[in-house]
Design a protein around this nucleic acid. Sequence first.
DNA 1: TTTCTCCATTCCCATATCGTTGTACGGGAA
DNA 2: TTCCCGTACAACGATATGGGAATGGAGAAA
Lengths: 120, 120
Amino acid sequence: MPDAMSGKRVPSRELFDLVAGHFRVLGEPARLALLHSLADGERSAASLLAEMKISQANLSKHMTVLCQAGFVTRRREGPYVHYQLADARVLSLCELMCDRLESDAISAHELIATRMLRED
Amino acid sequence: MPDAMSGKRVPSRELFDLVAGHFRVLGEPARLALLHSLADGERSAASLLAEMKISQANLSKHMTVLCQAGFVTRRREGPYVHYQLADARVLSLCELMCDRLESDAISAHELIATRMLRED
DNA sequence: TTTCTCCATTCCCATATCGTTGTACGGGAA
DNA sequence: TTCCCGTACAACGATATGGGAATGGAGAAA
């Protein structure tokens, strides 16, 4: 039975590339911190620059990447630029990942506790 | 009022590094395809190698990365090795990202349609 | 034991990406 | 107009990462 008739989804290589590319955008600590700073609402480039400990050029590049990925929108107001989360689901992704890591940490902790109780 | 008393979570740089590192693991098309292949259950290394169009060394390296990230578990059975998803939530992450991309695509489509209807 | 299979690891190269520096663009004020 | 400020872009070096080829190592069979 061919996949087309099985009802099962068969992702194409292009889809994997696209999804992986967006995960890679989230695979940068500085960009995660920037997204986190935008969680409370719109922020100006200057305020982000003041908060983060990165250079102006670096900030601009990271924000460009986030905009191209569709995670953030850019709004120009005179000489100033304001950034905003384009989609709150991005934060859901981060929270989901954090939950996973937390579970792993707990499991590791229990494993260590078990080993300490066990008589080798 | 300090952050510690505001109830607001202030992630550390180490947490951003950790989360970003795990997102980077998902930022590889081949690894996403491997995770997808494991969605239906345990698979042997040989069957994964037969399905994917990558070299044996490459497969082994990718699976090692997935195991170290805690996404996959490795089980040895004689000379054979079987891999299994360690956490179904990984698939949730991928689905969430796909939903986002789908929404973007729809938005882009509507935008194009609007422009086509508009008289410039 | 030897030999074979299956998988992991190591080394090397090509490519990609991050951060810095310097520069260019664009808007507002003088 | 000229100047300054805020931001984006380009070019560079350093580092990281994926892929291929070769090697290593564990286990099973002879």
